[in-house]
Design a protein around this nucleic acid. Structure first.
Lengths: 285, 285
DNA sequence: TCGGATTACGTGCACCGTAATGATC
DNA sequence: GATCATTACGGTGCACGTAATCCGA
């Protein structure tokens, strides 16, 4: 058994070229390093260096040992990282969502149900979101379609309907309803983190232009102070009373009227029973 | 950076089940091990154990860490072995030979030419012997055929002719020469370590039976005191005067009259120049 | 009461740093 | 003289062992 710090010092020497430089890099004295390398040779029972009195250099054995040592050090640090990561994962619930809209409520729900756990969330437009449950990237997902594979368990938790948000002067502002294709070619203000909606808009309106805004508040100001059409939903309107004079016209495409499902691996259903219980209780309303 | 002896102790604990047993196995005191495991947890920043006052056991993190640790320990010890092996190989010349007969002389030649080096030899019937030069299993080979690949360098060093060694009463004892196929079906005494000869006999005499003897001296006694035919060669007869009344009948198959080649990788020709020089000098005789 | 884990405490020595020496350019 | 490695030497921190304590079967 040879302690790993000897190999670390060997690698430092290989990187630096001289004992003194390596010692400095390692924050130890030169004699200490010199003795360490002697000890390493002794414990291996193999000469690792050519000693030319005032110049120390690796011989063939040493070169080989350095290659192995680099590998071993990598191995160890990756091992440590993985153990820590494994532990961390047990203390966090990662949620992947196709929409940003439910995140705040969902996080506060999880926080209250799983005290002490860290909740980490990501919004993604990736249609393979369900697969990432299987890969353990997420433990919970919010999807806009119910996955049909038997390994998943899911429950509808909310629905949302898309509206185009038009200035009153807009030619289409007094329509009762519109299809996205009717809006193709126009220029829209859009929030950047909108998950699957982004793909939907670009697919249905291939000729439209989108002014994408990272900051939600800035987007609000732009909506207030410009004539570009934008989007909103019933869910948003319920929470944020409309401060503008814009008109919300419902979008009629069926893909724009979605039900969200809370999904997990069936094997983890028990762990998340409280979550599903919550939505079962509230879904009657 | 976590020292490897902590992982070693962790594995010992996993193997033993209790700290006291593990401490005994490791030849340290129980308190020392207890503190080591606390230190390991601290350095990892991860709890590895369930502590039930009087019983310590691995938790999920601990189980994972043990799996990784076993791997790391294996890695390290294999690394150390390989470095030592690499060093040893530089101090030894390994010779693979298709025949045992030249080994003693060849070894003493190498010993005198390469003072301080260890000479290791193996006799094999493997027809891929030349390939094992390429794989660095051997640095020198004695072959009964000259390899045609350009990467090898070889020099003829000796020739040998096979004789069947018959009791005078044997029906074929007064033949001037015999082919192996004429002997098929009979039962022979055979030495076990005869390299390529073994394959030759079995190929040419598929119906013959062979009484294989591990000990060379025992074989000699059996030859003296039994009527089973055996084999000898001119090379052997030159060195060991025949102490029996057996008759040596030459074998006429061309494969049974061989020239031996000393072979090495062309890239190592320089290293073995003294060897080839020796045989060039002596081949005129 | 015994076996096992942890805590307390004193100690030794392994390893460190400083200083000196040797060697090479 | 400057740089670099090794040897000498004295000091100290850290990990060890012994002993004590706590806890559970």
């Amino acid at each position: 058994m040879i302690e790993i710090h000897l190999f670390e010092q060997l690698v430092a020497f290989a990187d630096s070229g001289t004992l003194s430089a390596a010692a400095e890099q390692l924050h130890i004295s030169q004699p200490a390093l010199s003795r360490s390398m002697q000890r390493l040779e002794e414990e291996l029972g193999v000469k690792l260096f050519d000693r030319q009195k005032s110049r120390l250099s690796l011989n063939e054995n040493g070169e080989l040992a350095v290659r192995y040592a680099r590998n071993l050090l990598l191995q160890e640090s990756s091992m440590i990282d993985q153990i820590r990561e494994f532990d961390r994962k047990k203390r966090t619930i990662s949620v992947g969502s196709c929409t940003p809209i439910l995140i705040p409520d969902f996080v506060s729900l999880l926080s209250s149900l799983y005290e002490g756990m860290t909740i980490s969330t990501e919004v993604t437009g990736d249609p393979a979101l369900a697969q990432q449950l299987r890969d353990n990237k997420y433990q919970l997902a919010i999807l806009h379609e119910e996955p049909d594979e038997k390994e998943f368990f899911s429950l509808p938790i909310e629905s949302e309907h898309l509206y185009v948000f038009l200035p009153p002067v807009h030619p289409l502002a007094d329509a009762d309803g519109l299809y996205l294709k009717d809006l193709d070619g126009q220029t829209f203000l859009l929030y950047s983190q909108i998950g699957f909606w982004d793909g939907l808009c670009r697919r249905k309106m291939p000729s439209a232009r989108f002014l994408v805004q990272q900051e939600y508040d800035v987007l609000g100001e732009l909506v207030e102070n410009s004539a570009f059409p934008s989007f909103t939903t019933d869910y948003i309107m319920k929470r944020e009373p409309n401060r503008t004079d814009r008109v919300a016209v419902p979008i009629l495409d069926k893909e724009a009227n979605v039900t969200y499902y809370c999904t997990c691996l069936r094997s983890e259903k028990a762990k998340f029973r409280p979550v599903f219980q919550h939505f079962k209780g509230s879904s009657r309303t």
